[in-house]
Design a protein around this nucleic acid. Structure first.
Ligand code: SF4
Ligand code: SF4
Lengths: 148, 148
DNA sequence: TTGATTTAAGATAAACGAGTCTTAAATTGA
DNA sequence: TCAATTTAAGACTCGTTTATCTTAAATCAA
């Protein structure tokens, strides 16, 4: 698994917020239900995203979470960095420490560009772009095979 | 982490065998020492690789493990499949089940080719190629910063 | 045959990630 | 003010991965 469960859930939640009701507060419970993500787990992930300024929140009735910035100002990379850190884009595919061109492992020439391509995907994609696709083309953010 | 620790260790062990003494049995203890991999853990990984016909072994003095085939007949992909299974090349980046072009998630168009490139790296690279690089260019398979 | 060497196998333990639960604090509206 | 709602925070449980330990079985050489 490339990303941790926390990160997958965080990305899906952010995409949901970007696509359903930009700018309005949505209760974490609603997001949890819509996406099939365990509520308490998502609440903890949301806390981290709030501390990292990806999301903003208010408590009480009509409270919830929303994107902290416009959806076209938030890249997938920002969310991945906030939840999983930079390690996945710096790690050696063989798990060797001290990754870098100084001390390369024999797979470096193939791995470094492949890894960079994955990184570019996250860096160059904004929530806005994907939210548009979800709205106009009906792409999914949840498991459609279970209890619709 | 893309690959499990077991898979990283298995790849490094196989590369070590391909580069130091092709065709001869090397005790797991020696591999463990050379690469800095916990002995008992590596022994268990070696067992799995033997059952998957990646390695062959004999017991007793002068025993050990060696590659089951010529190094140019073993791809990195064979080892990854044996130890981690095909999941990493089939999974959705958002963790959604039922990956496929029928039910795509909004990241599919970017993720599928990036994932395919990583897979191609494993499929197209043989132990032999990397062993040559290790021998001729001195690439590393171990953590050079600890107890040399 | 005997003893040293080495893999085979499985039990056990530690570390981590994933998920659950409880309580507190803030906000809103009646 | 009071009760309902919702996030905030942290303790707790569970399962998998990672790692260690123990014993058995095979092989070889003296
Ligand atoms: S060599 Fe390439 S893959 Fe190996 S550690 Fe350095 S950068 Fe990472
Ligand atoms: S859409 Fe693309 S990424 Fe998402 S599940 Fe299907 S193949 Fe995987």
């Amino acid at each position: 698994m490339l990303l941790s469960k926390s990160c997958e859930y965080g990305l899906r939640a952010a995409l949901h917020l970007a696509s359903v009701a930009p700018g309005t507060y949505v209760p974490i419970r609603d997001v949890s239900t819509a996406l099939g993500i365990p509520y308490h787990f998502l609440a903890k992930i949301a806390q981290a995203m709030i501390q990292q300024k990806i999301l903003a929140s208010t408590r009480g009735p009509h409270g919830g979470v929303r994107l902290a910035r416009a959806a076209d100002q938030i890249t997938l990379n920002a969310i991945v960095l906030a939840l999983d850190g930079p390690a996945i884009f710096e790690e050696c595919v063989l798990g060797l420490p001290g990754c870098g061109t100084q001390q390369p492992c024999p797979l470096h020439d193939q791995w470094a560009p492949a890894r960079e391509r994955v990184r570019a995907m996250f860096v160059e994609t904004t929530l806005d772009e994907l939210a548009t696709r979800i709205q106009t083309q009906g792409f999914r953010l949840a498991d459609l095979t279970s209890t619709p």
